[in-house]
Write a protein that binds this DNA or RNA. Structure first.
Lengths: 338, 338
DNA sequence: ATGAAAGCGCTAACAG
DNA sequence: CTGTTAGCGCTTTCAT
């Protein structure tokens, strides 16, 4: 005697076929929307499907189609990124395209030593492809995936050039926007707080900022490196103020860091933007949480994430499709901090 | 002629068996760590597994075991929650237990009209169980899942009592902690900003605060309802100040809202904590981002999320296991805002 | 246009 | 302790 209240065994194709008085194949065709089915039969079958409450078994389908119907979102390390608003935005953008398609979004991490797991998930058929976010130069994962010819999309330009599909914002142009804005305000002494220079995003923002600043006549731009976190921004700000007390214009390479830096300025008695102008990068929620609201370079993270999902899905559909790079244009959002 | 550089067809049990000179069953036993295998054979097989680069096909396994090896994390609506630091903390806590077990974490949403999808995923065998976060009273999903006898764990006490497993923090006790702290400071006039009262979390925090405040002799505690967001906190603060200008102690039911409220106070010329003491709830990153750092009621979200995952996995293992509720104790974290 | 039959890769009785 | 056998539920030729 089975347990009480147990779930009725889900209907199978076989049962639907019996109810409809047709073969499994026909039901399968109806379920998968194959055109070559007699209209009348199709209706009979549809009724049977409803009557039995049939719902296809994914494992069985996957076994024969060799498709998991799932993609992975691979987080870099343990969990630092989980506290970054960037994470939620990426998830939102990806889900906007996967959800309507019935594709599952699986969260994975590639903490040191776990990269093999990602490859295994792909090879085991648990995942059809992966989106890698925030990889740094030393990360072996992109190479591993390329070599295994597995579908992958990067969330940023790879550190070393490689044949891989990626989506990015034009970091150089974004930093340049910030630079011009600061120069236009006739700042006297400008500086920048960067992200980890092991990432292309941080490196490009620094390069772009310095280049444009040099063009505008500012040749000695002090840079302090931080880690894209809130506290990192605060610490870097302290250091910067110590090294360069007369700074009156600063480009901080992420809103989260800027948000951490502002209270430090206030504590030092510096008014924003009167005594020092601040420009951030991202246009994520911390920008609005800043006091005063942060002038920042907007990158359309949700759109970028959606594009990554689309590219990945396309690559899964046709693995022979050539790799590509999609670069979004940043814009300057002027608020009150500069 | 197949495409160049294509992935070599992954090895199957069959092939490993051939290489090792044994039967599929034996290889399967070795792979699954069944004890009853001769030590010598086990080694031969292990070598063959390595040699062939074998990795089990999950779809095939799922088909026979009727286990997906995946659980779902169901987000309430479209994406409001994605911007809340709470989201990342939950993900982190859940992954801490799923990752070592090789269980996949699938992100799902239950936006209006999509609840059926969740049930379907479960019945199709794509998901073994789900964790529901932030459900409100009108959400039909918990009931649907209970009625279908599917493994589910709630991230908060259900609005109406039902036989369901859930994890929560003792909201009443947490709010009481905040109340005592404010009373101990001899505040003259206290108030509170609540979350959406359609959730048990918000309701309980309000009740707990009012009850304890009454015990301490404060009988008219003004409450303004907000929505747990940053802007919601700011708006509510404005309203509160208008309705109750002499307030000098306030309990704000989430750090994110408190973070939105502080700039409003500053703008009104009110110093924290000198003119008004502020206590938050959560102890999430915004608490530290506040200026001054926020005194708040800590709820151990990561631990709670890990516990949810454990309970869910247990329930999946043995569906007959009775439902249970685990309630964590909150603590008061005293910083500078009160 | 439909059905019959084969088989995807694996686990789980059941014999031996 | 090991091998044989029988499916799990589905898609997909291949005939008809």
């Amino acid at each position: 005697m089975p347990e009480p209240r147990s779930i009725p065994a889900p209907a199978t194709l076989e049962e639907v076929a019996r109810v409809a008085g047709v073969s499994r194949s026909t039901v399968s065709r109806v379920v998968n929307g194959v055109a070559t089915v007699d209209e009348e039969l199709r209706e009979t079958v549809t009724r049977a499907i409803v009557a039995t409450g049939y719902t296809p078994n994914r494992a069985a389908r996957s076994l024969v189609t060799r498709r998991a119907g799932a993609i992975g979102l691979v987080l870099p390390d343990e969990g630092r990124m989980l506290g970054d608003p960037y994470f939620g935005r990426v998830v939102g953008g990806v889900m906007d395209v996967t959800r309507p398609l019935g594709v599952q979004l699986v969260l994975t991490s590639a903490a040191a030593g776990t990269q093999q797991q990602v490859v295994a998930d792909l090879r085991q058929g648990r995942l059809d492809g992966v989106i890698l976010i925030h990889t740094h130069g030393a990360d072996p994962l992109p190479r591993m995936l390329i070599d295994s010819n597995l579908p992958v999309v990067l969330a940023a330009r790879p550190v070393r050039p490689m044949p891989i599909t990626y989506v990015d914002v034009d970091q150089l142009a974004g930093a340049s926007l910030a630079a011009h804005h600061l120069a236009d305000r006739d700042c006297y002494r400008v500086a920048t707080i960067t992200g980890p220079v092991s990432t292309t995003a941080a490196m490009d923002r620094l390069t772009g900022f310095r280049t444009t600043m040099a063009e505008r006549g500012y040749h000695d731009v002090v840079a302090v490196e931080a880690d894209f976190t809130h506290e990192g921004g605060a610490t870097a700000m302290e250091e910067l103020l110590a090294r360069c007390p007369d700074v009156d214009g600063i480009f901080i390479a992420s809103d989260l860091m800027a948000h951490g830096a502002l209270p430090v300025l206030r504590r030092h008695g510096l008014r924003v933007p009167d005594d020092i102008a601040v420009v951030g990068f991202d246009d994520s929620s911390p920008a609005l949480a800043c006091d005063p609201p942060l002038t920042t370079v907007r990158q359309p993270v949700e759109d970028m994430a959606a594009e990554m999902a689309r590219l990945l899905l396309g690559r899964i559909e046709r693995p022979d499709r050539p790799v590509s790079a999609v670069v979004f244009e940043p814009t300057l959002v002027v608020r009150q901090s500069a």
